[in-house]
């Protein structure tokens, strides 16, 4: 512990100030979540008569039920449930495939010590920062050519490919630190590169796999733009359906239903975050550059 002065040696006033600031900040960070949670269980009457910050007169799960199964997006009133199913169906295979692709490519890059391997790294690093806008339209055209634009496999393909620089980089940095003897021993016994990767390297990569899987899960689950453009109407992810429900302001807007819908969309990634805090934090610095 190298800290300059810690709470045990601090004067009382400073200590109070420190905790006061931290608690105030915690409130700032928690406020939106608290407001949304409270209002999602509030009857409409309470919302009409008071502000969002007032406590509910009674707790009702009606808004959750409506958000789940009967809120409207345009003419379709089946709630956010189809969006949730679509998000799961898109996210799960996308995460699995992009973890495998990133691991394989990252391992190959780490193994391959050619002169211009460094230049390939540069291409990947730049790829992390390319705004999607500079790729979107040609990608639409190419996917149309492949016959998968606005389809289930189309959106998965886009998530995997657009995620490649990032998954590759994370795995490559991990595999550079793995002793070469492991791969060499496998090769001596006649295992191919792919064989070595599958039965020797992958099993020792659990940590990095978890880190990448969590970040890809968060990123893909939370994606809006790619889903909107590439998924097609039958596969719209939850984020897109949520905005449709909220912006569908025919008749009286129902903030409590909207908030219940927003929570439903946020719960899966929040659960993953709370369960996997350490891994989430580990990948976060690299993860944040994506999207």
């Amino acid at each position: 512990m190298s800290s300059p002065s810690n709470t045990t040696t601090m004067p009382l006033a400073a200590k109070i100030g420190l905790y006061a600031f931290l608690i105030a900040s915690a409130l700032f960070f928690l406020a939106p979540l608290i407001v949304i949670v409270i209002n999602s269980v509030k009857p409409m009457a309470d919302i009409r008569s008071g502000s969002l910050l007032s406590l509910p007169s009674e707790i009702t799960f009606e808004p959750w039920r409506i958000a789940w199964s009967s809120a409207c997006t345009g003419l379709d009133c089946s709630g956010i449930r189809p969006g949730l199913m679509n998000s799961i169906l898109i996210t799960v295979p996308s995460v699995i495939i992009s973890v495998l692709a990133g691991a394989l490519n990252g391992y190959a890059l780490a193994q391959w010590r050619a002169r211009f391997a460094d230049w390939l790294m540069l291409l990947i690093l730049i790829g992390l920062f390319v705004p999607y806008q500079a790729m979107l339209y040609p990608t639409v055209k190419m996917l149309s050519g492949m016959g998968i634009f606005r389809s289930y496999w189309g959106i998965i393909f886009v998530h995997v490919v657009y995620g490649l620089p990032y998954t590759t980089l994370l795995f490559r940095n991990f595999y550079v630190g793995v002793p070469d003897e492991i791969s060499r021993a496998a090769r001596m016994e006649g295992a191919t590169f792919l064989r070595t990767f599958w039965s020797v390297i992958l099993p020792i990569s659990t940590n990095i796999i978890v880190v990448v899987a969590i970040l890809q899960f968060t990123g893909i689950w939370n994606d809006y733009l790619l889903g909107l453009i590439f998924a097609g109407n039958d596969n719209m992810p939850m984020t897109v359906q949520l905005t449709n429900i909220v912006n569908n302001s025919r008749g009286a807007a129902e903030p409590n239903v909207n908030m219940a819908a927003a929570l439903l969309a946020a719960i899966p990634t929040l659960v993953v975050y709370f369960i996997s805090g350490r891994y989430f934090v580990r990948g976060i610095a690299t993860g944040a550059v994506k999207g």
């Binding site: 928690l30 949520l242 927003a262």
Partner: peptide
């Protein structure tokens, strides 16, 4: 945990 959780939430929400 409190300061970091917003990163798990989508920009839409």
């Amino acid at each position: 945990t409190i300061f970091l959780y917003p990163l798990a939430i989508s920009l839409i929400v």
